[in-house]
């Protein structure tokens, strides 16, 4: 197992009280695998990623356990984390422009990584950077390495970010909404690139997104988060073909598909996303759920396996047969 997360919690102390952004997450990831984490704003998907990276805001606290190649990351010191970040776990963000330093040439920014983590000399580091820019299919990498970030388009900047992250050959790449700011045609190119790089470099990917289409395109396995908790976890195929949680089903039903009936009423999920300051003691999705049962408001459903299917877990009081579309 490359990464094992157990009972992960992320809590923020705010002026209005304690906010549990992530609450009791369990999951693991094999080397070279691709995991999608899907959720809306406030679902805890980004905080999960930041907790793994040890990059929570200063009022945030991580509890539980995150083991990376057997090493515990929760409570690890800054020094230990600095070694892991960059060298073993890389992260790319939504807006590549804000992740790059506008004052420095790409070559300087990329070489810095290799000089620091690999102890390379400047010349060698720049050569290696050019190779990596080639690998992410930036045309004319040899010349473009000497340009500044503003001279690149959005899609090209995201390629630069990916190249920079892969320089140290990390085992895990965390991508937080990497294509959300990009146009669809560019998004398609970046998704193709990530999928190729996974095969070329054997890097495992955690893809954080709100877009189920992106997950279906790239991921082997999916976690669906809501209110900081896992609602459903499954292989991508069984999740999309047979969702067993009302929230997953609601999400899939509410997206207009390209062959849905034109101008028909979409099956919307009623209500609004939960207020993390006032989460109910039971299931966080209870207030918006069409399959509500008696214990839902008060008892938090356990995440348990779906009978007859390996790698498929759900947290719901309603029976599978009730929820799953026939």
């Amino acid at each position: 197992m490359l990464l094992t997360v157990n009972n992960l919690g992320v809590r923020f102390t705010t002026e209005d009280g304690m906010v549990d952004a992530v609450n009791g997450l369990d999951f693991s990831l094999d080397a070279g695998a691709t995991l999608g984490i899907v959720g809306e704003s406030g679902s805890g998907k980004s905080q999960t990623a930041l907790a793994i990276m040890g990059l929570l805001a200063s009022n945030g606290q991580t509890t539980g356990s995150i083991r990376f190649k057997g090493k515990e990351l929760v409570g690890a010191g800054q020094r230990a984390m600095n070694k892991i970040r960059g060298a073993h776990i890389g992260m790319i963000f939504q807006d590549p422009m804000t992740s790059l330093n506008p004052y420095l040439k790409i070559s300087t920014q990329m070489a810095e990584v290799l000089i620091r983590h690999r102890g390379m000399g400047k010349r060698e580091a720049v050569q290696e950077s050019i190779k990596m820019l080639d690998a992410v299919r930036i045309p004319d990498a040899k010349n473009r390495v000497n340009r500044y970030p503003h001279e690149f388009s959005g899609g090209m900047r995201q390629r630069v970010m990916i190249a920079m992250t892969l320089l140290t050959r990390p085992e895990l790449l965390i991508a937080d909404e990497p294509t959300t700011a990009l146009d669809v045609t560019v998004q398609a190119q970046i998704l193709d690139l990530l999928s190729d790089l996974r095969d070329e470099f054997g890097v495992a990917i955690i893809m954080i997104t709100h877009d189920l289409g992106v997950v279906a395109d790239l991921c082997d396995e999916v976690l669906v988060l809501y209110g900081g908790q896992i609602m459903e976890q499954a292989q991508a195929r069984s999740l999309f073909k047979g969702p067993t949680h009302p929230y997953t089903r609601g999400l899939l039903d509410s997206i207009p598909s390209l062959d849905s009936e034109h101008q028909s009423e979409l099956v919307a999920i009623p209500g609004n996303p939960p207020d993390l300051l006032h989460l109910p003691p039971g299931c966080p999705f209870e207030a918006r759920c069409a399959w509500r049962h008696e214990p839902c408001p008060t008892q938090r459903p356990m995440l348990v396996g779906v009978e007859g299917e390996s790698h498929h877990r759900r947290a719901c009081h309603a029976a599978v047969a009730e929820v799953r579309p026939s």
Partner: peptide, 11 residues
Amino acid sequence: LDVSIQAQIVN
């Protein structure tokens, strides 16, 4: 808007 809200507004 969030995915679950988009459908409400489209409707």
